[in-house]
């Protein structure tokens, strides 16, 4: 029989347990990280859009 270990949040200085068995962080930090991820995703998406517009503009210039 395996003993269930208490999994602590991986954020430094945080003493809380993880909020789900498969989670790495407590709910507070998981939410915070998810927030950063969302911002990063939005940033990448915006950059990709800018890049695509630039590529498209160059391609259009070449055609015309």
């Amino acid at each position: 029989m395996s003993e269930s270990k208490i999994k602590k949040c991986k954020m430094p200085k945080c003493n809380k347990e993880v909020h789900r068995n498969k989670a790495q962080f407590c709910l507070e930090h998981d939410r915070r990280i998810k927030g950063y991820k969302d911002i990063a995703e939005k940033g990448v998406l915006s950059l990709a859009l800018v890049g695509l517009t630039a590529v498209g503009r160059n391609a259009l210039k070449k055609i015309l």
């Binding site: 909020h19 709910l27 507070e28 939410r31």
Partner: peptide, 9 residues
């Protein structure tokens, strides 16, 4: 979960 989501320890 409320304690877990609460900001701080």
């Amino acid at each position: 979960l409320i304690d877990n989501a609460y900001e701080g320890n």
